[in-house]
Structures are given as C-alpha cells and as structure tokens.
Design a protein around this nucleic acid. Structure first.
Lengths: 344, 344
DNA sequence: TACTGCGTTGAAAGCGCTCTCATCGCCGAT
DNA sequence: ATCGGCGATGAGAGCGCTTTCAACGCAGTA
C-alpha cells in the first residue's frame, strides 16, 4: 500500500542505492539521474519510512520534553519556545509531564521505555533520589532545565533569578521608597523560591530593611494568595509597603485582595510579581514583575541537545538566561524615566 | 553497545524467536523457558528497539496532537487531558501547533512528513482550503476536535456549546432579571464564536430582548476587552445589563474595566465569560461562566483514535460533550438555590 | 509399525532503509 | 596496448525485530 524506496527505484530505472543517495544528498549523483529520481519521488508521493531509517541511523529526530506539569502560562511558554526551535532544527517534540513527587517512572517512560527520543530535556522542581536514579540511567543527551542534578552528566539551562530579584528589590527601595517588603514564596522546598528568598534576604539586610515575620510560603496559587491577602492586607498597607510575590498569579491574588479591602494599588500598597506571564498584563493595575524568559529557556534546551548531538564528548555546558525587571503600574514609580521599560 | 534480542537469546539459551514470543506473550512458551528468558531480559536490562519493532508492526504507539496554539489555559488543558489518557492506553503524545492561518504544512509535518504517528488529533479554529487538502492526504486515523471538515473522513469530538450558552442566557434573564445583554465574541470567522453568537441571537429574540448594536467582535484578548470596556462600560451600566464575553479572558478585561470606572460587578453591571479556565476563578468577583470540558475533549480524542485502531472500518463517530453553566459571583444571583452549582 | 496430533522450538524470510564494497566505463599517462 | 584513477552506479550485507513454516519429540491411535 505505501510506496517504498523500491518503487521509486523501479520508476526511475535506478537501484535503491541511488535513490538513497539522492535522499541523503551525499555522494554526488549524476545531475540527470538525480532529476529523474526526484521526479519519481514526487510522482509517487514517496516519503521514507521513519522506522527503517531509524533502525539504520539510530536517530529519530524526536526530542523529549518532560515538565513538572503541562498546565498554566509558565509551562506552556516553555513548550512553545521548545516546539518552535525544535521545528527550526528539524526535530519533533514529544511532551510529557512528571509530577513533582513522581518516582521517576514518568521519566523512564519517556526514555528507555520508549527508546525513541534522541535527546531529553527535563525540568524538575523538586529533586529526589528516585528521580536522580532515573536520570542516571538516561544514556542519551540530557538537558536539565532550571536546576542541577549532581552525580548525573548533563547540560543545563538556568535562569539567573538573582539579578532580576535584586533589581526588583532595589527598584522598590530606591525608586519607590518602599521600606517594608513582604515576601510570599511558593513551597519552602521549591528550588525557585529558595533562590528568590535568598536574594531577598540578602538585599533587605544590605539596605537595612527589617524582615521579621514578613516571609510567607504558599503554593503559587491565586486563591491562597487572595485569602492571605484578605487577612493581612490592611495590616501591611502603607505607602512604604510592598508585597513581593514569587509568581504573578499570587500577585494577582494580592492585588484583588487589596482592592477588595478598599485599598488602592499602588497608592496604599505596592504589589509585585515574578515570571511575567500573561497574567501580569491581566491585572489592573498591571503588574510590575520580573521577566523570566521561559520560551527562550525551552529553545535553549533544544539548542543544547542538538549541539550535543554534533559533539557528544564536549564538556557539560550551562546556559544562563538573565531575568529582567519589568516595571508596570502596581508599584509607585517616582522616576518616570524608568517606565519606558513598561510593556503595553 | 545496546543490548539486543540476540543477547537475550544467547543468555537464555534459546532462539530469538522464543524471546520474541515471550515479549509478545503470544504462542504459549513453556513455563520454564519463559522464566529463563524473562530473567535474562531483566538481567541485561533489555528493551526492544522501537524502530525494528515499528518496522515490522507498522505501529509506533505515538499519537499526534495538533492545536491552533500551544499557549494559554485553554489549550494546555486539552493537552493535559490527552496526555493523561494517552498514557493510560499505552501511547505517547507528539504535540505541535498549527496557526489558524497555517497553510497546512504544519499538519503535513506532523503526519506524512514524519510518518511516525499512528493517529492524529487535530483542532482547527479556522478552516481553509489548504488545510482541508492537507487533511485529505492523511491516511491514518484522524480525529477532528471541535469542528467538522467536510470531504474528509474522520471521527470527531465536539462541544455542545448551545446548551451552555442557552443556559447562561436563560439564567441571566430569568434568575438575574437582566434585560440587556451585550455579546462580545472573538473574530467573526471563529467557529466557536459563530456558534455562540447564533445561540445568543436565538435566545434573545425568543425572550424578546433587543440586540441592536450590542454585538462586538474582538480577539479573545484581555487587553482589547479592557479597552472596549473602558469606553463603553458606563454606557452599558445598569442593574439590568450584562456583558457576555466569549471567553473568560475578555470577561476578566471587562470586570477590570468596570471596576476601574468605579462600577460594582455585578451590582452595576453583570459580566459573564465562557470556557471556565482558571482565569474564571482568578477574578474578583469570580466569573459566572460556561464550563467547556477541555481535558475531557483531549481524552475523548485519544479514545476515538484508539477505538479506530481496533476497528478501522467502523463508521465515523462523533462524541458530543456538554457544556455547563457555572454560576459564581459576577452576575447577580437572585435565587440562592442556584448558587450550589458554584465552585470554590 | 506407522501415522497423526500436539506442544514447543528454531531457521529463516523479510520489513525499508543506509552504507560499504565491487563493478564498470572512460580518461589520460606510461 | 596496458594501466591507474575517477566518477557513477549497483549488489548485497546488515540494523533488530516479528512471523511463517518446518522440525522435533512424544504421546495416542489405528
């Protein structure tokens, strides 16, 4: 039923070797012969069988992408970036999710179990022994997103969250005159939260802000942030106070809580977020936040994978992407020049 | 380097045929022999080569999912549902996006070009000739999401949007006492918008509401909705007026616009949405909306594909999923009994 | 004794491709 | 005339698997 290289060869009056040569544009094939073969190919609508090809070449041109979750603005941006770059480079993407507490079976499912992907990009929000063991068994190019797995050889793409966090805090203190910053992170074990919190502690102590009990750990969700906000917002309120949420979604919750309490953002309370997902432009006032280049992260992962194919034995590479302050309206800007950074 | 069926056979002292039999649990293999083979398999950590297997069986156990975009709450829910079900059934998912105005090349890339997927699920928001032509060439099981492509043989999963839309409109009129409903859709060519608008026209004329100029077409985005809202919201305002946006994101824009204008939602103006994405729970007041079972849609697509594998020649099947009114706070509820439907 | 049936196994033929190696004709050099 | 070199092509050997078919041993039956 489906047309094979044999059929093409017969139609073009050549051997299958020649057809194969034309396909792979390798050893020079006589101009005239090549044309004959090519027209036979398009006449018959021939496409090489992927399996046969994969069997010989040991390459599928499929890459695996494993994320903690497939849901939400954050991950879907990564997927988008990865998908785009993969296509540019002639690869396909196979996507799958591994819950944070996954035992690693999902990972194995993505690799050995199927054995079809040429390389694997993995994002892990909480590392554990099982996952580490799974990753050790990966015997194809591996890229770890936003983290580092010790004891496993891999390339990695990380976000320099510190720069953005520091810029944010400095902006609040120096441009907005903020004297109290409440930090609301995700789970205390979350790798991103840990990093952002450490930057927070550093800068606050540096500029002499007192932190006290101003650190909370929620779950990155709008609802819990809103609830906490409803309870605390009046207590926090004050021209010199800001809430620094570890993602935009929680920040949106705080904005709405402040509004519900009759406060004005940013006049009575500044609220800033992190990530610069679409949500940051879907609040009024729009969120001042730290942009994390998610789609670039996805793209970079694909790049690293492909570079590894080209040079399997080069030393492990790490790409660091900058995070960047995006000033919008949810914090009082006293220096108008800065607002040129604003988007939309 | 990697271990093959040969190695297993040698270690277990049998022929590769026997190993193959054990793998495929087919013709009865002697109990004792089977155990020997199985332990050889796990000793060597053997996994069958996907390509060799695919070459013989013409099955990859990979399914393709093509969406208009990979971004946003809506599509990522579909992906999630599909991914989950695919895994349950022992399949992997290959995901890719095809822009609405895509010439179909993306589709072909997903299928023939790669030829690796066993079946294909496609969602098309705007059909055109090129896409239709592409789909005609698909010679593997095909499922179309949320639409119907005439002239192409395929199964389909559709959402019964009418039921939800009608329920919403009736609710507004009968429970909330609304007498004027402004409809804000997506692009006029968008298939979902068309369907919702037609239900809107039907019900409004049925209950004797005048529509007049109360129909707008935007682009499903928060920003444009907010802008339009800022201009019109005071004019619309009134206890008996509601804005019916064709997705939650636009509805969120209208809520914020109303709030910015100093109005109360729902006291001065009701705002309702469509889809019930997470955004519907991320507004204050929370959105009354129509729930579209996105993840079920993804799952159903996978189901249909697999059923088609089992019975290639059964007649085209269409699964219709119900949409459902979800009452929250963004419209005035005058009958408290109804509020039990509310989520969170 | 010969034959048939059955459970179990192995040999071997591909699946559609890539790639090495051999072949062939033709050229200029010896 | 003989030979080496070169461009162009074909023959054929696998890649790792599934599957058909034959073979084998061991009943049970005629």
């Amino acid at each position: 039923m489906s047309v094979s290289i044999q059929d093409v060869a017969a139609k073009a009056n050549v051997s299958i070797s020649t057809v194969s040569r034309v396909l792979n544009r390798r050893n020079i094939v006589n101009e005239e012969t090549r044309k004959r073969v090519e027209s036979a190919i398009s006449d018959l609508g021939y496409t090489p069988n992927v399996f046969a090809r994969g069997l010989m070449l040991r390459r599928s041109h499929i890459l695996g992408l494993v994320l903690p979750d497939l849901h939400g603005e954050f991950y879907s941006e990564i997927i988008r970036g990865a998908n785009l770059r993969a296509r540019e480079l002639g690869y396909k993407l196979m996507i799958s999710s591994a819950a944070a507490k996954d035992d690693g079976s999902e990972l194995m499912a993505a690799v050995a179990d199927h054995g079809i992907v040429d390389g694997l990009a993995v994002m892990i929000s909480e590392i554990n022994t099982r996952i580490r063991e799974s990753l050790k068994k990966v015997n194809i190019p591996l890229v770890v997103l936003d983290g580092d797995v010790s004891g496993v050889k891999h390339d990695s793409v990380v976000i320099d969250q510190r720069t953005g966090t520091v810029a944010m805090l400095r902006h609040l203190v120096q441009q907005c005159g903020i004297r109290r910053i409440v930090f609301v992170g995700g789970p205390i074990t979350n790798i991103d939260t840990i990093e952002r919190l450490s930057a927070y502690r550093e800068v606050t102590s540096e500029v002499g802000l007192q932190v006290g009990d101003d650190v909370y750990h929620l779950d990155y969700q709008y609802d819990t942030a809103f609830e906490l906000g409803v309870k605390r917002v009046l207590e926090w309120a004050g021209q010199e106070a800001a809430v620094f949420a570890a993602n935009d979604e929680m920040a949106a919750g705080f904005i709405d809580a402040a509004l519900a309490a009759g406060l004005s953002v940013p006049d009575d309370l500044s609220v800033v977020g992190f990530d610069d997902t679409r949500i940051a432009s879907m609040t009024r006032p729009r969120l001042t936040t730290v942009r994390v280049p998610m789609s670039s992260m996805g793209a970079a992962a694909i790049d690293l994978l492909c570079q590894r194919f080209d040079d399997p034995k080069r030393h492990a590479t790490k790409i660091t992407l900058k995070s960047e302050l995006v000033v919008r309206e949810s914090c009082g800007v006293h220096d108008p020049a800065l607002s040129t950074l604003s988007t939309i």
